[in-house]
Design a protein around this nucleic acid. Structure first.
Length: 1150
RNA sequence: AGUCCUGUAGCUCAGCUGGUUAGAGCGCUACACUGAUAAUGUAGAGGUCCGCAGUUCAAAUCUGCGCAGGACUACCA
């Protein structure tokens, strides 16, 4: 037999994927698909570069699947979709990984290991897992040009980045500033705000918080705080020293305090009380009125001033228990506004050092001060807070920076010199060692010891643990400090309006990420801190004279060479270290011949216009700038490929995880806006997280991470991809459950595979070749109509970046419509009789369905659909053109009609079930009452279909209006509600209570007047739904408006036919069990009692039985002694209770 | 603390331009079917549609306030 259509024994998706992958590689199918669209309009996709120093996880399968889907879809739609791979190769994660491997810290770099060696190690480390990544990319079927990736450490890439920086510089969008920045002492670098905004950086921590007491110096400005008070004995006394209360959660910054900030517009109060940690020591404290309750909240007792002294003396409990006492006496004595406190001076709290760059220790005003927390007075340490620094600068206040870059106190802080300011910077062992030194069981943090010191000195009013969220370094997990640093910034705030306006033109999937998360981010934009004090990254191309008066930003290697030449000429640089480089030679060899990373680029000293030496600013740039520069740098634009760049900018589509919102999505957007005044991408899909099956984040620590390779091995890429896409929208988090993949495999892929196998089996037998006359039946037209509806929906969904809708529609079609309905109903047409117009129609229809489904599924399941398409059409589906949907083939009426047939069928089957009649037992008739002509027409059309489905001989259509059926009436709320309004409830109640007579009247007249709540309302026939509820005397089932009655009377003839069918079924099973081919002819003999039901059935339906079973035995010889049939095997068969026979079968040699 | 997303059957998800029996698949139970068969059909059990209030004749659907989970934002002294 000619096997035009390959047949398979079983479905093995991983094997299919492997084989198809091999085919792709030998045929270069990807290359062909690009070649095919060489001159087609481009669809531009940007691949976000992964960092190859870590292993890929299952979430990468998700992200890459999404990217692949739309690239494949657009290719099928006739676009040229180039996909250049890329690698993100610089940055902190890589450096920290290398440090760990080499067992060094940042301090060692340049000492125990040269920068050269260190960077070489980074370069090696970063590409370590490229093979693993490439393997994953291939195995999940993500088509990407892995042969020509862009790599961010290549000289060409860096040159493009320099060019971008120069553009920013020339627009005055790059500046150097001394600012307070988030700084990670553990990583040894400042952090940009978007690094701080990585998921999980803000964590709840319990810090020691202190309300410190700053002693006011008495002078003219503060005199009003020193007013004497009456002490209860009629004497006017000075109530102890006067203190300003200020709260902090970072006691380690107190030694660096240089000012106190109050809100000039807020009300403050003077409170007379006692020091909570010093028994019976009077004091006067100043704080915001609104903070009173919070500070004096421990059941501390409020007393009017005059009796306080006496009460305090009498209250021995208070005297002895101090802070633990039930009550602390206090009284408000004087109110004033914050601005009155301005200029008040106080004694330095912890006098370890004096600021040299300005005034200090006085009260200043700042609008940012609130009373939501603390005392309404902000302890101000200009070095460790952005607000602090700004307000201090405004008031000429100096600063103290008593902490070094590793997060340790400087020597001046004698009590704590050299100690880390955060306990988290010490390992458990170090903490234990420190505890020993301290002579304690447990290590006490600097914060805790400062609090103790203040308590003993009588300068603490309140010490509490305070839980709040604090930012942590995204790489080291250690707390961040705010620290004054010199850095270079991109002035993105200057273009804030453009950034916002351009964002509004971007299509975000889902929309809320763009308007909410990203939109809000842009609204609160901060300048982009570009500096990183590290080694492995793109060096900042700015050279400066020592005094900073002259500087130059280099935008190309050519320019650098020219400047070097000038410097050499001026005698500043002995020789050109890049002498080998030839400007304007764009060959890779020329570019790869030099290295412009540190330390090489650091050795270059340029000459300023006035002849002074200029050295490079030592910082690197933020790696996020690297990846944000990929639209330009991947093409070495503007030095090469200008046309290519222009054609491929901006991208039509990008996709990454939501975690990139403030990462890559932002840097792409910022750089494009600032340098091109354009978006970098028109559509962005941000996918959600992949969680484990109970909804927890996957992590190595929890051991619930899923290995992508094992998953692919086990299920094949198609099933994994299909599962991920069909289960939930990409932007919803996916609870990854392997059982879901199994289900997809079983339902969708097996149904599709079985359908194809079925087709191939009979198409091969009949030698179907797609030609010949074809007369489409109603069900052919139906499935083609459904197919076109699905095609239309899938097309629109893919175009709208809604792959889940497409996947579900395709899957439903395959499983329900095609496999469970069309193929099941039409089975006989495929194997019965010779190849003719009808059979041809069946083959063609099924072939078309499979072919289109292969094309629709190709973006999501690229391997299996390619195999399917190749088997059907002999070419790769990925080289095919997306099918056009044919509106004329969509027949809604037909689809509805078939839906009606399906519903009717299911109703009849449910009656059979209820009455205990199996489907093989034919029944005489079914009755369906109808209410209108349209319904009657529909029923006529599906009559044969339904009858054969449910094995009933006759369908009687009853006219519901005339018969004596019991009726049911239901108001149409949508129609009536609008008209009846408030009366609706009563109307509904009245309608539901209608008698059969009333229903009949409404049906007859078309209208009925009702009295509802004293008003007359008119009910029209269209306002209600009238359905038949019952057919007296018959077994009935109904669903909604549809009712079916089944006549279950059995005649002898019906019983015999049932037995005949039963026999056919048994014989077919026996044929199969005996290993006969579907086309084999047989001889048969049946032994049964002479006057039993089987004999009667054989007498009447013998020829039917022999025809169905391909039996050559003459009908009148079938009944006989089974043992008499030569070479046959005899089987005993029970048809139903008490009815049995013996059957002999033998194959006739063909 | 604020913003956004999510909350529907044991599980995964539809439905959500308001309309009266809230659906599917999986899983479970029972029965049936058998020329695709590790498939399929029918039936059953399983729901305070997260809670409360409001708008409305009518709310899973719209509004407000909560609760839970997640993501994000924040210099929070």
């Amino acid at each position: 037999m000619d096997k035009r259509f390959p047949q398979y024994d079983e479905l093995d998706l991983p094997k299919v994927a492997e084989e198809v992958l091999k085919q792709w590689e030998t045929e270069d199918t990807f290359g062909q698909s690009l070649q095919l669209r060489k001159n087609a309009p481009p669809f531009v996709f940007y691949e976000g570069p992964p960092s190859a120093n870590g292993l890929p996880g299952i979430h990468h399968v998700m992200a890459r699947t999404i990217k692949d889907i739309f690239c494949r879809y657009q290719t099928q739609k006739g676009h040229r979709v180039d996909r250049k791979a890329g690698w993100d190769t610089h940055g902190l994660p890589i450096e920290l990984g290398v440090e760990k491997e080499l067992g060094i810290t940042k301090e060692d770099i340049g000492k125990t290991i040269s920068i050269e060696e260190y960077n070489a190690a980074c370069k090696k480390a970063v590409m370590r897992y490229t093979d693993v990544w490439n393997d994953l990319t291939r195995r999940i079927g993500f088509w990407l040009d892995l042969e020509h990736p862009y790599v961010t450490y290549h000289t060409k890439y860096i040159e493009s980045v320099w060019h971008l920086l120069k553009q920013l510089y020339d627009q005055d969008l790059l500046y150097k500033g001394y600012t307070i920045q988030p700084y990670s002492p553990a990583a040894g670098t400042g952090l940009s705000s978007h690094e701080l905004n990585q998921p999980g950086t803000y964590k709840p921590v319990k810090d020691t918080s202190v309300v410190a007491m700053f002693r006011v110096i008495r002078n003219a400005a503060s005199e009003f705080l020193f007013t004497p008070v009456e002490n209860g004995r009629g004497e006017m006394v000075q109530w102890g020293d006067v203190f300003i209360l200020a709260w902090t959660t970072t006691p380690w910054t107190l030694p660096s305090n240089t000012a106190l900030t109050v809100n000039p517009g807020l009300e403050y109060v003077r409170v007379i009380t006692y020091n909570p940690y010093r028994k019976n020591e009077k004091c006067t404290v100043v704080l915001a009125k609104a903070a009173l309750e919070r500070i004096f909240n421990r059941g501390w007792e409020y007393r009017i001033t005059t009796n306080m002294e006496i009460d305090a003396e009498e209250d021995s409990a208070w005297k002895n228990e101090g802070q633990n006492a039930r009550s602390l006496l206090w009284g408000v004595d004087g109110e004033f506004y914050g601005h009155q406190l301005e200029g008040v001076r106080y004694e330095q709290l912890l006098p370890y050092a004096q600021p040299e760059d300005g005034d200090a220790f006085k009260v200043i005003a700042g609008d940012f001060v609130t009373t939501e927390d603390g005392t309404g007075v902000v302890h101000t340490a200009p070095s460790f807070g952005a607000d602090d620094q700004r307000v201090a600068r405004q008031h000429g206040i100096g600063s103290l920076t008593l902490v070094d870059l590793r997060g340790r106190f400087k020597p001046e802080v004698t009590d704590f010199a050299g100690e880390y300011v955060k306990a988290e910077y010490l390992s458990a062992e170090e903490q234990a060692a420190e505890a020993k030194k301290q002579g304690r069981d447990k290590y006490l943090s600097v914060d805790e010891r400062i609090a103790i010191k203040l308590k003993t000195e009588g300068r603490a009013f309140k010490v509490e643990k305070y839980e709040h969220n604090y930012p942590h370094c995204w790489r080291t997990d250690k707390p961040v400090l705010y620290y004054p640093l010199d850095s270079w910034f991109v002035r993105v705030t200057a273009k804030k309006d453009r950034l916002i306006a351009l964002n509004k033109t971007i299509t975000w999937k889902p929309e809320s990420t763009g308007t909410g998360r990203f939109g809000n981010w842009l609204e609160n934009l901060q300048d982009w801190n570009l500096s990183r004090s590290r080694y492995w990254g793109i060096p900042l191309p700015i050279w400066r004279t020592e005094d900073g008066s002259e500087e130059i930003c280099i935008g190309s290697l050519k320019q650098l060479k020219e400047e070097i030449a000038r410097s050499v000429q001026a005698g500043i640089l002995p020789a050109d270290p890049y002498a080998a480089f030839v400007p304007n030679d764009m060959s890779d060899a020329n570019y790869d011949g030099i290295d412009i990373h540190r330390p090489y680029v650091d050795h270059i000293v340029l000459v300023s216009p006035s002849g002074k030496p200029m050295r490079r600013e030592t910082d690197l740039i933020d790696v996020w700038f690297d990846s944000g520069a990929m639209p330009y740098a991947q093409w070495h634009y503007p030095f090469e490929n200008e046309a290519t760049f222009k054609e491929k900018f901006p991208a039509a589509f990008i996709a990454e995880g939501v975690d990139q919102t403030r990462g890559w999505f932002y840097t792409l957007h910022a750089i494009a806006t600032l340098t091109q005044d354009s978006v970098a991408y028109q559509t962005v899909v941000s996918n959600g997280l992949v969680l484990d099956k109970v909804g927890q984040k996957m992590s190595k620590r929890l051991g619930n991470a899923v290995d992508p390779f094992k998953t692919l091995d086990q299920y094949g890429a198609d099933a994994v991809r299909w599962y991920m896409i069909s289960n939930a929208s990409p932007w919803d988090n996916l609870k990854f459950d392997a059982e879901g993949i199994t289900e997809v495999q079983r339902k969708f892929f097996r149904a599709l595979f079985n359908t194809y196998t079925f087709f191939a089996l009979y198409a091969n037998i009949d030698g179907f070749d797609g030609t010949g006359e074809a007369t489409l039946t109603e069900s052919d037209r139906w499935i083609l109509s459904r197919l076109n509806s699905v095609l239309k929906l899938a097309d629109a969904s893919y175009a709208d970046y809604e792959p889940t809708i497409a996947a579900r529609a395709i899957q439903d079609f395959v499983v329900e419509d095609l496999s469970n309905w069309y193929v099941r109903l039409n089975r006989r047409r495929f194997w019965k009789g010779e190849l003719g117009a009808d059979k041809n129609a069946a083959f063609r229809t099924l072939h078309r369905c499979l072919e289109v489904i292969a094309m629709l599924s190709a973006p999501i399941a690229p391997f299996f659909s390619d195999r399917l398409y190749r088997d059907l059409k002999g070419m790769s589906v990925h080289l095919s053109d997306w099918p056009k949907h044919d509106e004329s083939l969509i027949d809604t009426e037909l689809e509805q009609r078939t839906a009606l047939a399906q519903k009717l069928t299911s109703l009849v089957l449910s009656i059979r079930k209820k009455e205990g009649h199996r489907v093989r037992q034919p029944l005489q008739k079914m009755l369906v009452p109808v209410t209108d002509a349209a319904m009657r027409t529909r029923l006529e059309a599906i009559r044969d279909l339904v009858l054969s489905e449910v094995n009933v001989k006759e369908l009687v259509i009853l006219d519901a209006s005339e018969s004596k059926l019991t009726k049911k009436i239901k108001p149409d709320f949508k129609k009536l509600g609008a008209r009846m309004g408030k009366l609706m409830k009563s109307v509904a109640a009245a309608v539901n209570a209608f008698s059969q007579a009333q229903i009949a009247e409404l049906e007859a007249n078309g209208r009925l007047k009702l009295a509802i709540e004293g008003q007359e309302v008119e009910l029209l026939r269209e306002d209600v739904e009238i359905t038949a509820e019952n057919v007296p005397g018959l077994s009935v089932a109904s669903e909604g408006p549809l009712t079916v009655a089944l006549d279950i009377t059995l005649t002898d003839e019906l019983v015999q036919e049932g037995i005949a069918r039963e026999l056919v079924s048994r014989i077919q099973t026996l044929r199969k069990e005996s290993g006969f081919e579907v086309t084999d002819r047989i001889q048969m003999r049946i032994g049964a009692g002479a006057d039993g039901p089987i004999t009667a059935a054989l007498a009447r339906f013998g020829s039917y039985i022999t025809a169905e079973t391909l039996s050559l035995t003459p009908v009148d010889q079938v009944l006989g002694d089974p043992d008499g049939l030569a070479g046959a095997v005899v089987h005993a068969v029970d048809l139903e209770d008490g009815v049995g026979c013996r059957i002999a079968l033998s194959r006739v040699a063909s």
